[in-house]
């Protein structure tokens, strides 16, 4: 996973509530066996005209300078719905490294953290201010300092955000959490042994699929 430390970027605003992951990346683009190349299909239904596949000039990510946005400021419950990790993959592939919203779908939030995409929860009123900043485009870049847990507005005002210490550490160092968990392998072995003894009736899947 790519490290996340500091970011200064153009922010794009998407003032819609309940943007589900089907809207972030529709199911017909999930037939890939790779993690890359999904950026072209990010927000497909909003971004392209369905008649001819041309860009919808109204959509924020098709306009300068937001075409180069590194931050997305979105509405409530962003990333609800499907568990598809293709949603953070598509955002990252497009160039977005952080999404700021009043709240997120739980699975999307988790998936983002595991890919170096920083999800930041901030109150609705603050998100509205950041959306106003975002509308000013390249003259008003937002900065994010993960170590200090602050979003820095164009005028220098700092807004604190919460993130749990474990994920903050993984993001700052770009670490793989499977490696972290495997350090607990002896405890997992002991747990399995105990469980097998206490619940010998737990069937193996091998039977059901043989």
């Amino acid at each position: 996973m790519e490290k996340f430390t500091k970011l200064t970027a153009v922010a794009a605003s998407l003032p819609m509530a309940n943007v589900d992951t089907d809207k972030v990346i529709p199911s017909r683009f999930l037939k890939t066996i790779k993690r890359t190349g999904l950026g072209a299909h990010l927000f497909d239904p909003l971004r392209y005209n369905h008649q001819d596949g041309s860009e919808n000039p109204e959509f924020v990510l098709n306009r300068e300078p937001w075409r180069h946005a590194g931050v997305l400021v979105a509405g409530d419950n962003f990333g609800c719905g499907s568990s598809r990790e293709h949603a953070p993959w598509a955002l990252l592939d497009f160039g977005i490294r952080s999404v700021i919203a009043p709240s997120f779908g739980d699975i999307f939030y988790n998936n983002s953290l595991k890919n170096g995409l920083l999800p930041i929860r901030l109150p609705e009123a603050v998100c509205e201010q950041l959306m106003a900043d975002a509308a000013m485009g390249a003259n008003a870049r937002l900065s994010i300092d993960l170590e200090r847990q602050v979003v820095i507005r164009p005028g220098g005002e700092e807004i604190h955000f919460e993130i749990d210490a474990f994920h903050k550490h993984l993001l700052l160092e770009g670490l793989d959490d499977i490696g972290q968990t495997l350090e607990h392998a002896p405890a997992i072995d002991r747990f399995e042994e105990k469980r097998r003894a206490a619940m010998p009736w737990l069937p193996a899947t091998t039977e059901a699929a043989s």
Binding site: R84, E85, P88, I107, N110, N111, N115, A185
Partner: peptide, 17 residues
Amino acid sequence: GIGTSEVEHVLATQTLH
């Protein structure tokens, strides 16, 4: 439900954090 990174995590460790 879990994402693909967590699928990999469970395949490798049989656990989730």
